[in-house]
Structures are given as C-alpha cells and as structure tokens.
Simulated scan of single mutants.
Amino acid sequence: MRAKELFGMTVLDSKVREVGRIEDVDIDVEEGNVESLVVSLKKGILSNDYIEVDFSNIATIGDYVLLSTEIEKEAEEAEEVTVEVEEE
C-alpha cells in the first residue's frame, strides 16, 4: 500500500466506532516507516479537530484503519435556545 492511499480512509477505534478520516501521514524518511497518522475527527461539518495516532496503536489497515485503542469523544452538550417572536 502506498502512503497516498491512506489519505481519506475511515478510522475506527477498538470499539469499531468511527473516529474520523486520515488527513496526513508522518513518515520517517531515513527509515521509510510510517510513524503516525493525523486523523481529522468526525465531529461536524466545520470541525477542525485533529489527533495524532502513533503507528503502534494501529491494529490493521484494510478497507478501514482499525486502531487498537479506544478514542474518547467529549460529550457535547446542546444549549437550549429560546426565540421570542413579537406579534404585530
């Protein structure tokens, strides 16, 4: 597999929950080994949250990248918004 084939692949954690997609790959050019993957987290359309996953935390790479660790997602609390409409 070529490094460019990793870009955009779906990343799943050890509980097989979708974490996000591969955004970048960190390669040790002297050794030619992948050191880590940068994953764009699946949080929303305008999300720019990223995590770096060390190569030792990757269980398998196939149709998906399966991690050997669980990724904790912060529980997002929705704020209740009240809109008042004045009648004319």
Rank of each mutant, 00 (worst) to 15 (best):
A3S: 14
A3Y: 09
A3E: 08
A3D: 11
K4M: 10
E5H: 08
F7Y: 13
V11P: 03
D13P: 03
D13L: 01
D13Y: 03
V16Q: 11
V16A: 10
R17K: 15
E18P: 09
V19F: 00
V19Y: 04
G20I: 04
I22C: 03
E23V: 10
E23T: 09
D24C: 06
D26N: 12
D26T: 07
I27K: 00
D28P: 00
V29K: 10
E30M: 05
E30K: 13
E31I: 08
E31Y: 07
E31F: 04
N33E: 13
N33A: 12
N33P: 02
E35C: 15
S36M: 05
S36G: 10
S36I: 11
V39P: 03
L41K: 05
G44T: 03
S47I: 02
S47R: 12
N48L: 14
N48P: 06
Y50W: 08
I51D: 03
V53M: 06
D54Y: 09
D54G: 09
F55G: 00
S56I: 13
S56H: 13
S56N: 13
N57P: 07
T60N: 12
D63P: 04
V65F: 01
V65K: 01
L66Y: 07
L67I: 09
L67P: 05
E70G: 05
I71F: 00
I71C: 01
E72F: 11
A75V: 15
A75N: 12
E76Y: 10
E77P: 07
A78H: 11
A78F: 08
E79M: 12
E80V: 14
E80N: 08
E80S: 11
T82A: 04
T82I: 13
V83N: 09
E84N: 06
E84P: 02
E86Q: 08
E87V: 13
E87W: 05
E87H: 12
